[in-house]
Design a protein around this nucleic acid. Sequence first.
DNA 1: TAATAAATGTCGTTT
DNA 2: AAACGACGTTTATTA
Lengths: 258, 258
Amino acid sequence: MSKNVTLNNPSNVEAVNILKSGFKDHRSIIIVGNCSVYYKGRASSQLGDGERIIILKPDGSALIHRPKDYPPVNWQPPGSLFRIKLDNDSIGLRIFRKKENEVIEVKIMSIIFLAVLDLTDVAEFNLHASEKDMQEAILLQPSLIEDNFRPITSERHVEPGFIDIMGYDNKNVLTIIEIKRKKATKKDVMQLKKYIDSLNVGEKRNIRGIIVAPYLAKGSQELISSFRYEFKLITPQQCSEILLKKKSKVITDYFNIK
Amino acid sequence: MSKNVTLNNPSNVEAVNILKSGFKDHRSIIIVGNCSVYYKGRASSQLGDGERIIILKPDGSALIHRPKDYPPVNWQPPGSLFRIKLDNDSIGLRIFRKKENEVIEVKIMSIIFLAVLDLTDVAEFNLHASEKDMQEAILLQPSLIEDNFRPITSERHVEPGFIDIMGYDNKNVLTIIEIKRKKATKKDVMQLKKYIDSLNVGEKRNIRGIIVAPYLAKGSQELISSFRYEFKLITPQQCSEILLKKKSKVITDYFNIK
DNA sequence: TAATAAATGTCGTTT
DNA sequence: AAACGACGTTTATTA
């Protein structure tokens, strides 16, 4: 018996049986066929007949894709439950989360193709150049900001949220850094202002504010200047490379010690 | 010749030929197989060998799904280009957007299943209970806010953005409404404040501010009170029903006239 | 559980 | 092309 089952144009009876065993065994399932979709939960939606790709994953996530667009037309996140039943001229597929009160009902008129698959995927996924990477890179190499910049805490909590990086500059002035992995908007500048204001509730202190980003949105520079903050151009790519270098250095050092 | 091609365990040579003609004919393509994925663009990522579902759509959108999680592990939005080539022991699939400088490279070691499909889906998709629906419902039935509320403009543009609804109340006081389809946060209250402040740049006027939402986040009520704004409980579902009623009434009226 | 902010966010709309 | 806000946003993190 093959671990994977694939069928072209199965009968609805046949399909329901295979799907039921697929659910039981927590397989990855692909259904291609003509269906209509009804959704009700936070919002509600209807979608008339058409040919779509339905993916049901072992973790309970579900995707219904039309032959266009990046996002699924309907979906459920992991943890959803699947129920299937044979109707007169169609298959009823119910994808639901009870607690959240979210339900998708798929009426499958006919199946073009059905796959019940036992997929193995344990590989690591590594994503670089996130905002967190930028933060790490600056902490590893504070001179990215300027010579003799000395971070004191990362992610310090103040009332409005978390400060990305806090530190002292060359002249021992408290410096607050707000990092953006892409264009820094006026909103981002206001965010920085909120953090600095919240540190200034008692006696007024001299606090520097620096926006770190690859570039600025229109109007951001004016806002930055009006608050006497500064903009420091750093790209996620730069940071990514610094992390790579530093990490390989750590490995090199390790072998040198050995 | 069938319009749809499905193949179990095709050879790499066979697969490349079928995929090439599939790209040419703008088909929907499903590839299930063992692959590794490399992405570089706004960020970058690596993903080692594993069995995944790859979907390529006629509009140039692409999805690479692991057998878990709701979001694709790698993707490209519509408008991407697909290129395929046969390597020694694998297939090289390149999914890229030149202008945006975003590239996915998929190294497909072996294909478990391949489908090249001509899917037809022209159905309408209707989503209800969006914020726009709530806005429409209030404009159709302004008494939802309170008796004798009279909207004057919807979506008026002021400096920080767009005001959801503007109008005059029973006492002819200018009233600004900010609509949220779910929990209204402190941020949303601040948004309303920005709009009202921007209308108050010249002479100070008496302006009412109302947050319309199904419920409030913690701290929002305090913020609302501190600005002397108000909270009006309205749910997206309520609005959805009003729209349905009003629209069916329009149809009824139409038939009555006829 | 709620709040908060990031995301390769994407997508639509308007300037 | 840039700015801005909605999205059934989802997801992760933290109080």
